[in-house]
C-alpha cells in the first residue's frame, strides 16, 4: 500500500470512528494490517532468497574439509609436541644443574678447609714472613678456586631459573591450542550444517533415502534437482 492509499484509508478510518461505525473502522484497520503483513512477507521472501543464494556460493569445498579433518588435528599435535620437547630439554638441563650444584658447593667448602690448613702451616713455618700470603702460588690457587666456585654457583642458579621458559612458553602454547580448538569446533558445526542441508535436499528430490557420506561431493548431482525444487518454490511465491 503506498502512502497516498494509506493516507486515504486513514482518513476513512477517522471518519468511520467519528461516525461511531465500529464495523467499518475494524474493517479498515484489518486491511491496513493485512497490507503491512504483505510487505513483511515480501521482505522475508527477498531475504530468504538472498540467504539461499549466499549459502550456495559458500561452497563446501574439499580444502575446507581437509583442513578440518587433517590439518587442524596435525597442528594441535605439533603444538603439543613442542611443549613435550621443551619439557624434555628443560628437565635434561635441570638434571645437569642438580648434579653440578652440590659438586661446586663441596669444592668451595674443601677449598676453604685447605686454605685454612695451608695458612696455618705457612704461618708456622714463616713466622716473620711479612710479605703476606699473596706470594704463595698455592694460596693464590685456592683463593681463585673459591672465587670460581662462587661464580659457578651463581651461574648455575641462573641456568636453573632460566628453565622457567618451558612453563611460560608452554602456557602460551596451550592457549593457542584452545583457540585452534574453538575454530575447529566452529568449522565442524559449519560442515555439519551445510551437509545436513545437502542431505535434506537429496531426500526431497529422489523420494529415495540417499544416505551419502555427509562430507563428500557425492551430493552434487542431486543438488541440482533439489536446487530446482527450492528455486521453484521460491519462484512460485514471487521471488
Amino acid at each position: 500500500m503506498n502512502d497516498k492509499a494509506l493516507l486515504s484509508k486513514a482518513r476513512s478510518l477517522v471518519t468511520a470512528l467519528e461516525q461511531g461505525d465500529d464495523v467499518k473502522a475494524n474493517g479498515i484497520l484489518e486491511r491496513i494490517a493485512a497490507s503491512r503483513e504483505a510487505s513483511l512477507f515480501v521482505e522475508i521472501g527477498k531475504l530468504t532468497r538472498g540467504l539461499h543464494n549466499a549459502m550456495l556460493t559458500i561452497r563446501l569445498d574439499a580444502r575446507l574439509i581437509g583442513i578440518t579433518k587433517t590439518d587442524i588435528p596435525d597442528a594441535k599435535e605439533r603444538l603439543n609436541a613442542v611443549i613435550t620437547k621443551t619439557e624434555e630439554a628443560a628437565h635434561r638441563t635441570l638434571n645437569a644443574v642438580e648434579e653440578l650444584l652440590p659438586i661446586v658447593d663441596t669444592m668451595a667448602i674443601n677449598a676453604d678447609k685447605i686454605l685454612n690448613l695451608h695458612r696455618r702451616q705457612t704461618r708456622e713455618t714463616t713466622l716473620f714472613d711479612i710479605a703476606g700470603e699473596g706470594d704463595h702460588p698455592l694460596t693464590d690457587f685456592i683463593v681463585r678456586v673459591k672465587a670460581d666456585a662462587q661464580k659457578l654457583h651463581k651461574n648455575l642458579s641462573d641456568v636453573l631459573m632460566a628453565q622457567d621458559f618451558q612453563d611460560l612458553t608452554g602456557q602460551v602454547i596451550r592457549r593457542v591450542i584452545e583457540v585452534v580448538q574453538e575454530v575447529e569446533r566452529s568449522l565442524v558445526d559449519f560442515i555439519r550444517i551445510s551437509s545436513t542441508r545437502r542431505k535434506t535436499r537429496v531426500k526431497k528430490s529422489n523420494g529415495v533415502h540417499a544416505a551419502g557420506p555427509a562430507l563428500t561431493m557425492a551430493g552434487e548431482e542431486s543438488k541440482v534437482s533439489s536446487q530446482d525444487e527450492v528455486d521453484s518454490l521460491l519462484s512460485s511465491l514471487g521471488f
Binding site: 628437565h91 642438580e98 618451558q166 612453563d167
Partner: peptide, 17 residues
C-alpha cells in the same frame, strides 16, 4: 602445586638452596 613439572622442579631446587 603446578601443572608444569619443570616449574615444580625449579621451585623445589630453589627451596633446597
Amino acid at each position: 602445586v603446578d601443572d608444569f613439572s619443570t616449574m615444580r622442579r625449579i621451585i623445589k631446587m630453589l627451596l633446597r638452596e
